[in-house]
Amino acid sequence: MKKLSFILFASIFIAVYANAGLKEINSDDLSHITGQAGADISLNLSLNQTSDYQLDSSVCSDPIYCRLAVSFNNRYHDGSQDTYTNGVRTPSVTGKKQWLVFKGIQGTVNIQRLGLDGADLTYRNKANTVNVLKPAIQLSSSKTKPIQIRNLGFNAISIETDTVANEGSGNTPGYLAATTGTGYSNGKYTIAGFDNGKETGFTGLMMNGNLALNGKVMIFSCDSTHPRC
């Protein structure tokens, strides 16, 4: 009996819901709907850094864990034996893939406040005869809450090469390179001086500053009334 009652109730609920139907709400209807203010969004994005914005030695104890590598298509250390068919390059077996490696990647970007609100947008129609009212999503920021950038960048950049041609068996990719030789060991300089203990490479880059943005961006549906639609 209980099971029959439940089935009967569910059937009545579905029938009522189905008969209720859905009605499209146009811009005029939406303009009369009010709600609460919205939300303030705060984001603190940190990569490989401690709370005082220094490279985290516990995370980057092995340098290969704090790298970003880019390999360009058909970029090899030796292309002298490559062949071409109708302009299409076929790399030779002598080619070892090369990588552009950014070492010691780190940084913190603190977005203190990003406003997310609903707002009314008013503009003139294409014929410039009447005002059109549109509901919109508004993103806003204030110069009093700048985006804080702390030690964002990398310690060195270098071009590294795979150990085996065409990524064959036993290959060590260039982005894992830990070069050993005169003046450096395990991918780091050993000569006394400024670079001692740092990863091999050149042209490091670090950014610090406050990015003050004061303004708003409004997102709305575009139709035939707007001059740019």
Rank of each mutant, 00 (worst) to 15 (best):
Y76C: 08
Y76F: 13
H77R: 10
H77G: 09
D78L: 10
G79C: 03
G79K: 07
Q81V: 13
T83C: 03
Y84A: 03
Y84F: 06
T85P: 03
G87P: 00
R89H: 02
R89C: 03
T90P: 02
S92A: 14
V93R: 13
T94H: 13
G95H: 07
K96N: 13
K96L: 10
K97A: 12
K97S: 11
Q98E: 14
W99A: 06
L100N: 12
V101N: 05
F102Y: 03
F102H: 01
F102M: 08
G104C: 02
G104L: 02
Q106W: 12
G107L: 01
N110K: 02
I111H: 01
Q112A: 03
R113I: 00
D117C: 01
D117W: 00
G118S: 14
A119F: 09
L121Q: 09
Y123F: 15
R124A: 15
R124P: 14
N125M: 01
N125D: 10
N125L: 01
A127F: 05
A127G: 03
N128V: 01
N131K: 15
L133W: 10
S140D: 05
S141W: 00
S142H: 05
K143D: 06
K143R: 07
K143W: 08
K145M: 13
P146K: 02
I147T: 07
Q148M: 13
R150H: 04
N151P: 11
N151C: 09
F154H: 02
F154L: 05
F154C: 04
N155P: 04
N155S: 15
A156N: 06
I157E: 11
D162H: 02
V164S: 09
A165T: 08
A165M: 12
G168H: 07
N171Y: 06
T172H: 03
G174H: 06
Y175L: 04
A177W: 00
A178P: 00
T180Q: 03
G181L: 10
T182N: 11
K188G: 04
Y189I: 04
T190I: 09
I191W: 11
A192P: 15
A192C: 09
G193L: 09
G193C: 12
D195I: 07
G197V: 12
K198G: 11
K198W: 06
